[in-house]
Design a protein around this nucleic acid. Sequence first.
DNA 1: GTCTATAGCTGGATAGAC
DNA 2: GTCTATCCAGCTATAGAC
Lengths: 214, 214
Amino acid sequence: MINSIETTDWREARRRSAHDAIIDAAWSLVSEEGLAGLTLRDLAHRAGITAPTVYVYFDSKNAIYDAMFGRAATEFDERMAEPFHYEDPREVLAASVRRFSEFCTNSPARYQLLFQRTIPGFEPSPESYAPAVRALAGARERLALNGITEARHVDMWTALITGLVDQQVSNDPGGDRWTRLIDESVDMFLAHCQSTPPSRKPASRPTRTRGIQT
Amino acid sequence: MINSIETTDWREARRRSAHDAIIDAAWSLVSEEGLAGLTLRDLAHRAGITAPTVYVYFDSKNAIYDAMFGRAATEFDERMAEPFHYEDPREVLAASVRRFSEFCTNSPARYQLLFQRTIPGFEPSPESYAPAVRALAGARERLALNGITEARHVDMWTALITGLVDQQVSNDPGGDRWTRLIDESVDMFLAHCQSTPPSRKPASRPTRTRGIQT
DNA sequence: GTCTATAGCTGGATAGAC
DNA sequence: GTCTATCCAGCTATAGAC
């Protein structure tokens, strides 16, 4: 069995590329038809294969959603981890929100899958979710650099930012009706937190969350 | 044709009650199975009839969603229009948010239908939507009583409040992780608006919105 | 690995007897 | 108005030839 390892790698690479090509086709399709409009027939057709062949690479439709989620979460992590070219922590924080908002508005379907969980029976696997956790850690870091560490302030931040982005994506896609309020909202939030004396209250109990927290 | 008017009214009343009974069953069902889990067969079974009979009262499944939306919007309007027993406009505003949050957390399915628009082909008719418009006017009034009239501040308010409620409903149903932040958030918002000099910028252009604005 | 063919199911909606 | 029976479309998923 000469070159067994290389052969295995080769096959693995081919398999991966076919795998990726199907996910490419899936994203291409949902960006046109919406997340709920994904069917295996259409997906296979766009990928240049037939529906049963999809099952060679994925066990189920949810496995496809999971792979889509994984790619989106990786994109999210990578985008948010790119350096911010500011010195001022406040500028960095505001820029991160603008970047987050841009990421979401760029692809409503991706936003829907990552942050809204509207697919009935689907929950992402821990592996697919992992990159999102890393991205969340970055957000907490940027808050901490602005002196925000209390759990209740982090929760307020989450609500404020997701509220802005959700209104933007849902009610003015392609516009800037809410994104242009980002800087003012960040100022409001920081002014409030800095004027509030740190409490000694116990930290917020952890609760199960749906979607990626920001 | 003696008593023709009474007879017509009688039939109309019977028809309406059957109509309402089906919507009762529909809400009962979606509160258990989720909004997407509504099927005509299940609905008919719960209402004690068969699926074809549903079509005597509704033209299509979306017509059922529309009637459900209409009832929910009326409930929303009536609840928010109840008097607030406070003098201070700030207290009234905060109470309205608590009431709004309570209304949403009381029935996640209702929240989903009214404010999230997750049903693929469904958009509410103007008639069903009308009560929601009235409720929105009340919200604007309560903001105006606090000196908030600028369009950008109203948009910030919308984002802030829907963000809090959405996080609560989505990530801590039954708890108070975000609702307990309402008063602090209202304070933050009012302090910000009152410290901001009124601008002379043109009002935000109207854009098509999805879901009910608050 | 890829195909054709099809199973098996569930959904909305309709026809027509009563 | 209500039923039984059925249509028709769409979906995921599998069987088996090549």
